[in-house]
Amino acid sequence: MTPITEVEGRRLALTNLDKVLYPSVGFTKGEALHYYATCAGALLAHLYNRPVSFLRFPDGPDGQRFFTKNVPPGTPSWVRTAEVPRRSEEGTATYVLVQDMSSLIWAANLVTEFHTPQWQADSPGTADRMVFDLDPGAPATVVECCTVALWLRERLAADGLHVYAKTSGSKGLHVLVPIEPTPSEKVTAYAKELAMEAERELPGLALHRMTRSLRPGKVFVDFSQNAAAKTTATPYTLRARAEPTVSAPVTWEEIEGCAEPGELSFLATDIAPRLDAYGDLLGPLINLNRARKLPRGFR
């Protein structure tokens, strides 16, 4: 019998709670739902008013994985949605907005990573945050990403910007910056300039091009996720990896002290203690008082 639970007055059918999603550690779907419920306060703040793309992995990370952008079949009528202009054709697409606990648990029951754009639903294509996705090419690891992240922090600070970081939940780091609303194409142009500068200033380490043959041992500074059509793993989302890793906010002290890749890898079970210890380290991303304008010429 499918368990029925009530969340904020909404009745939800939760399926296959004993199903093992991460065999390496025996982590079940029920534990995944529990994780999302316990970190909902922080996660929902970063999902709020942002159209959600789902990377679904219902049979675990070794099973089929697929992106769902439009509203999934069977979505309850009470789940809020947003009409978003299509980028490559006329008309709009309908996306889910995960605004509350009931919507979060419904979406988590689909077994998903949450991905969101750098803009909000009521201002599509106008970014209020900037992101750099630091992706290491083996044998480089997150340790090398830390070196690039620290360079970016200093360079962005020189332009008067506040800078924050989280793990990708995969191999690398995300560097994030709250900005005053700016057209996505201008944010992308500025981010590209900094990625190119990083390549010049950190020769043999940073790389601004995706070319696979150039990437071994280097850190790809991916600026392209600032494009209006792109999305990034939302803070606190589980990832479809071998273990239930999370895209987790980190302190700059942790980045400065990182000597081994495992030091910046966090599982679902690590997040509640970190929230107790630090609060939401990315809270300033949703505090407009921390947002700053891009340098003149990119506004």
Rank of each mutant, 00 (worst) to 15 (best):
M1Q: 13
G217M: 00
A13T: 14
R296F: 09
E254H: 04
E263F: 10
G60T: 10
L110T: 08
F67T: 14
V142Y: 05
R215F: 09
E256N: 02
S123I: 10
S168Q: 04
N49D: 14
Y164S: 09
G91N: 12
G257M: 10
L17S: 09
F66S: 05
V219M: 02
L43N: 01
A157G: 03
L202V: 14
A42M: 05
E6V: 10
R153W: 04
G137T: 12
K230S: 09
A37W: 03
R296Y: 11
S103P: 05
F298N: 07
R56I: 05
A189V: 10
R80S: 09
L161T: 03
A140M: 11
F66M: 04
F220L: 15
I4M: 10
V84Y: 12
A242H: 12
V177G: 07
A93M: 08
F132Q: 00
L150S: 02
A277L: 11
E253S: 05
A229C: 02
H208T: 09
V148M: 03
S53T: 15
P273Y: 01
D18C: 01
C39G: 02
V25C: 13
G204K: 03
G217P: 11
S184Y: 00
E89T: 14
A191T: 12
M1I: 15
L194Q: 04
Y48G: 01
E180P: 00
H34I: 08
A165I: 06
D18S: 14
F66K: 09
P58F: 09
N70G: 04
G160W: 13
R153G: 00
S247D: 08
A107D: 10
V163H: 03
R129S: 15
E8T: 11
R241Y: 00
P284V: 05
S213W: 14
T245F: 14
S102T: 15
R290V: 13
E199D: 07
A198Y: 02
R274S: 04
A206W: 10
G257S: 09
T126S: 04
L194W: 13
R299F: 10
S24Q: 15
T167D: 07
S77V: 14
M101K: 09
P76M: 08
K218Q: 12
R50K: 15
L150W: 07
E83C: 01
L267F: 00
G26D: 10
R274V: 06
D135E: 05
G63S: 13
W252N: 05
P178F: 05
V143G: 02
M196N: 13
W106H: 02
P85Y: 13
R215Q: 14
T38V: 06
T245M: 03
G26C: 04
L156D: 07
R56M: 07
P3W: 08
L97C: 02
R212M: 10
R290G: 00
A121H: 12
R292Q: 08
P203H: 12
V177W: 03
P61M: 12
L21V: 14
E6G: 01
V187I: 15
N289I: 07
R209S: 08
T232I: 15
G172D: 13
R292M: 15
V71W: 12
A233N: 06
R212D: 02
G63T: 06
Y164H: 12
